[in-house]
């Protein structure tokens, strides 16, 4: 039975020791949807999206991506991961590879794309994230914002159906946040499914199709951004928004 959802959580439970980090998670994300996950620190946002590509395993319930269930098995997991790109808070570019090599590494080694083709695609991606002149630069030679844009290009190089963002701007200086958000905004209109954990409420409001609010491992509220930001229903969401939007 094919699932109409790009990503589906069903009855998911996860514990770190006695800490119940994901509780009764049911969430269906449609193809092309841009879902923004917000909530206080430690509410389980990052853990939630790390379950989508199997960086974390769930203890109960199921997570499916494109109708395929995530299990801990090597080959099947790698097959799912090929379709799910991820962008991390701390970039995690390969420090011993140039920007271009960072982007071509997975296509060449995982998808067996010929080097020449991978490189021309990588150059097109660098163009797309606004860094065509940085192909030969090593990560240490790039600013934080530039590194994160290369990391986005690297994730896109595998032509994923789903792109996960784990607080992509939290490690950046304020003046670099915009350049990364601009790239993400442009992506949101391309039809790729995006799940974004962020504290950038402006981004959530402008680009998100849906806001999911988490607190203490639960999904407490989900709504269209307009409604969530103007009239949150849940008291904990109200408290969170009053704190984060106060200044």
């Amino acid at each position: 039975m094919p699932s109409p959802s790009a990503i589906e959580f069903s009855g998911v439970q996860k514990w770190f020791g006695t800490n119940h980090v994901l509780a009764d998670i049911d969430l269906a994300i449609a193809p092309g949807e841009v879902v923004v996950i917000v909530g206080p620190s430690g509410s389980g946002k990052s853990t939630l999206i790390r379950c989508i590509n199997g960086l974390e395993a769930v203890q109960q319930g199921t997570v499916t991506v494109d109708g395929r269930r995530l299990t801990a098995k090597g080959g099947e997991l790698a097959a799912i991961r090929r379709n799910v790109g991820m962008v991390f808070q701390a970039f995690h570019l390969y420090p011993h590879k140039t920007a271009l090599e960072n982007i071509t590494l997975a296509p060449i080694n995982v998808k067996r794309v010929p080097r020449e083709q991978a490189e021309s695609e990588a150059r097109a991606l660098l163009e797309r994230v606004g860094l065509p002149e940085k192909a030969a630069a090593y990560p240490a030679e790039l600013s934080g914002g530039q590194q994160q844009r290369v990391a986005i290009a690297r994730a896109l190089a595998m032509q994923p159906k789903v792109l996960l963002f784990d607080e992509p701007t939290s490690a950046l200086d304020p003046e670099m946040i915009k350049e990364v958000l601009d790239v993400m905004k442009a992506l949101a209109h391309t039809g790729i499914t995006m799940v974004v954990v962020t504290h950038e409420m402006g981004f959530a409001r402008e680009v998100g199709d849906r806001v999911v609010f988490m607190d203490a491992g639960h999904i407490v509220e989900q709504a269209a951004p307009e409604r969530f930001f103007s009239a949150p229903a849940n008291p904990r969401a109200q408290l969170f928004l009053s704190k984060i939007l106060a200044h």
């Binding site: 590509n53 960086l55 090597g74 790698a78 097959a79 991961r81 090929r82 799910v84 790109g85 991820m86 991390f88 701390a90 995690h92 570019l93 390969y94 420090p95 011993h96 590494l105 997975a106 080694n109 995982v110 990391a151 690297r154 994730a155 595998m158």
Partner: peptide, 24 residues
């Protein structure tokens, strides 16, 4: 985090060791 980044791209554990871990 580097190993997670490599794993998230679908590289096998042996590839991660050879291409990422050992050179670094």
């Amino acid at each position: 985090g580097l190993l997670e980044a490599a794993a998230s791209q679908g590289l096998s554990p042996a590839q991660i060791l050879r291409i990422v871990t050992l050179p670094i």
